[in-house]
Design a protein around this nucleic acid. Sequence first.
DNA 1: ATCAATTAGTTGCTATGACAACTATATACC
DNA 2: GGTATATAGTTGTCATAGCAACTAATTGAT
Lengths: 149, 149
Amino acid sequence: MEETRGQLEASVGFWMGITYRKLSTMLQQRLRPYGLTPEQWSVLYTIQRSDRLIQKEIAELTHKDKPTTTRILDQLEEKGFITKKVGELDRRAFVVHATDKGREVIKETASIEQSLSEEVRSIMTDEEYRLLINILLRVHDHVDAKLQS
Amino acid sequence: MEETRGQLEASVGFWMGITYRKLSTMLQQRLRPYGLTPEQWSVLYTIQRSDRLIQKEIAELTHKDKPTTTRILDQLEEKGFITKKVGELDRRAFVVHATDKGREVIKETASIEQSLSEEVRSIMTDEEYRLLINILLRVHDHVDAKLQS
DNA sequence: ATCAATTAGTTGCTATGACAACTATATACC
DNA sequence: GGTATATAGTTGTCATAGCAACTAATTGAT
């Protein structure tokens, strides 16, 4: 079956990228009316869920590097979804929290992300789903460990 | 186990993205000495494998859109890995083929991509690997069908 | 207490990808 | 044959990500 899919079918990495981008595009289309991209959504969701995080913590939770986090936060701030406040204990750090508008947009859009997740989940068995997550985490951790060295 | 991984663990899409980027970064680091990125590598590999493709075909085989394909081909051409020739039958199209230098660099680097693929494959059973590919394709096809409409 | 090393965040550069608007050529319809 | 439509490719814009170099504040070592 895979033989009909082009020359790179043997490389699970390429298929992971292709499938991920398709999923991301679909979420992007559904979120567009709310003025959020999928990555902005995930950052805002993380902020709103655990309020009073600093950027470093947001970066860790969302698995983004610091420059990417800075820029996504800039966009969320421009759109009025978050505010940044210089840390009281550590004046290098910014404490980020969601505005009412930010909490509101997450409330409105949470079902969009959730329904896409459920849609994906529905095309496989629970056992397959569990295994998929498990394999992704194993691959991630393996490669992550190698990248440190 | 997944509960310790942050707030987005329920969304397989986010984990697919995070894991894919880790894999891509690792391949990027290993390919760097050869002056190729993972995406450039996959395009050049595809060209060198089925010579005399036109850009549209390359785009389809590598699952990239036309603008992205144009730009990656521009970079490969600048580096002397490919040449473009106006099509004889269809003067809108460019026939792309790999130069000796392009074929040489794929020969030198094929083992890098292969060993990373094998490394990934080694951290799961054959059955898990088969299932992973199969699930990725199913998700891809499902979302792809939805995106058309 | 001072100076070095660490840490939080920013800025710049490059690559990729989605999307829209565009040019040039080819095909179809009448 | 001429016009409408489709197709191949390009260009521009924005968002994300990796990487390197940077600033400012903090911590640590003596």
